[in-house]
């Protein structure tokens, strides 16, 4: 069953066509990879789905509900969460307090029966899940002093706290070391086991192709290819888009 159906979304920014007529169906409990060279419109695509940018044309249907026109917080509360490419923690708050904010959202309150539990404890549990060492001082540190890897994990923790059904991860792996990537990949695989649907925007093709069920390729805002990782790897047009040369 398709959990998310994207049809013909188009967005131009003052003449620059950022996303042009992109359609894709995402089946429940699969991992969709989105790749494409820099500036090919991947983040804009994510922004449109999550309500941060309103498209010129097109529709996004989540579980039978049209989502274009809904503000970002409504989209989030329906169950589509997104992690930002540019990490956006609450810099002045300690890491575990960062998670209290999504824990206070209507979605979480409704699902955990009023949600008057101990939020601090809940947030520490979630942070442990994404790799914050519980017994250390890391979860209590202010976000502004945390290293980049932890901030990326914090983005992921936010989505887990929100109990999202669709996880949209915009370049989660960028700027991480191989070791960090290998430690985060199991978390994503576990989410899949839990029945979540994941959309990953990535430049780290090798890591992505290992876990993706389907991949779409964007170039200059257009979808130039859709298929299983193996097909994408062998496609001439994709190589051309990436390498910028005639093959």
């Amino acid at each position: 069953m398709n959990i998310l159906e994207v049809k013909g979304i188009t967005k131009t920014f003052g003449g620059v066509s950022a996303v042009a007529d992109v359609s894709v169906n995402i089946e429940e409990n699969t991992l969709l990879g989105i790749i494409g060279p820099n500036g090919s419109g991947k983040t804009t695509f994510v922004n449109i789905i999550t309500g941060f940018v309103r498209p010129d044309k097109g529709s996004v249907v989540f579980k039978g509900k049209e989502m274009i026109g809904l503000p970002p917080y409504r989209v989030t509360n329906l169950g589509v969460g997104r992690a930002f490419q540019m990490v956006k923690p609450f810099f002045h708050l300690p890491a575990y307090k960062n998670i209290i904010v999504p824990l206070s959202s209507p979605r979480v309150r409704a699902s955990s029966g009023g949600g008057y539990g101990d939020k601090d404890a809940m947030s520490l549990d979630i942070l442990e899940e994404v790799g914050f060492e519980r017994d250390s001082s890391v979860p209590y540190k202010t976000a502004s002093v945390l290293p980049h890897g932890y901030l990326k994990r914090l983005e992921l923790a936010r989505l887990i706290a929100l109990k999202s059904e669709v996880f949209i991860l915009d370049e989660l792996f960028s700027g991480l070391s191989i070791a960090e990537v290998t430690s985060i990949t199991p978390i994503i695989e576990k989410l899949l086991l839990d029945g979540k649907t994941i959309i990953m925007v990535e430049h780290r093709l090798k890591e992505l192709f290992r876990i993706a069920d389907k991949v779409i390729v964007l170039n200059f805002g257009k979808k130039i290819k859709e298929g299983v990782p193996k097909e994408i790897l062998e496609d001439e047009e994709v190589k051309k888009a990436y390498l910028g040369v005639e093959v």
């Binding site: 970002p72 509360n77 997104r82 930002f84 923690p89 609450f90 002045h92 959202s105 929100l162």
Partner: peptide
């Protein structure tokens, strides 16, 4: 701190 992240927190 970051209103977009707050929105993305629902």
């Amino acid at each position: 701190d970051n209103d977009r992240a707050t929105m993305a927190s629902g």
